[in-house]
Amino acid sequence: MLSVQNLSVDYGTTRVVDDLSLALGADEILMLVGPTGCGKTTILQALAGLIPISGGSIELGAWHASATATVAPEKRNVGMVFQDFALFPHLTVQQNVNFRLKDSHLADHWLELLGLNALRNAKPANLSGGQKQRVALARTLAHEPVFVLLDEPLSNLDAALKDSLRWEIRNALKEAGVPAIWVTHDQEEALSVGDRVGILNRGKLEQIAPPETCFCEPASRFVARFLGEASFIPGRLEQGYVTTDLGSAPGTPVDGATGEVDLLLRPDDVSMHSSGSDSNGTVRWSRYEGGTCLYSVDTDAGCDIKVRVSHENRAAAGERVKLAITTTHPLAVFNRVPT
């Protein structure tokens, strides 16, 4: 069971990770997301013991590390899957997976499970990106880590491969039954694969919760904007309902928001119709997405609202349209920020 208390990491005088606390269940997968420079990779390196920490503690079963009591990476029994795979180029696939194993039984198991049997004697240079990442995963899991760290494992792979390998990795981690922290900058990956999602901003954890909660009830505007398209529209919260220019909807207040508020609208929460006299906005641009079409609409009240509609429903830039809130599930409501 991993438990991190008040972890801080400094590079010189810059605080890169600030007062981070989290705990992970037996085979839980935590997705860490955040913009570039938010400290995601630093957290992984600190957990693995590859960089020194300046405050707090990390505890994992047999060991306990703090700023003063360091534990060497090789003593931590933490597995790490690297963005650039980090396969030893002078060893074959089999030798890589067997790296420090006396008994090749587990190596065989993972090579088999990840479909690498035919490649046992290949050198890493001859493998495709997806194969390399499978070998890296097999190597990590075969060494029976008590805990796995994945550092953007899919970012060096092409889009088609990402989708299938994502599930392969998840299933393998679940099969191994170990907790894992998986760092990504891909919000779709973050929402779909993990049991919980942690959103980082400037070294601080903004929210850590199941994916649905993070998406529907974001703890801050930053989280709302980071996970998917977010539009905000002013309204008034009264008795659990928010009334706005585009209609009303049930609202869940964040940070005790009340009275004059901003309502978070996802592109699917709003409908758009071309209309004549009762129009309330002008189309700024549209982006064709295949099955759907994303519109940016300037409302007459001066808000920029993103709307996703079926591709059959077309409107050109400059066209007048009518927007209306259609959702019936509660939407997140934030305190109005003075502009």
Binding site: Q45, A48, A72, E74, G79, M80, R100, R139, T140, L149
Partner: peptide, 13 residues
Amino acid sequence: SLVNAARTLGMSL
């Protein structure tokens, strides 16, 4: 990453 990989796999520095 190679050194880090070897170390997280349990090999001393």
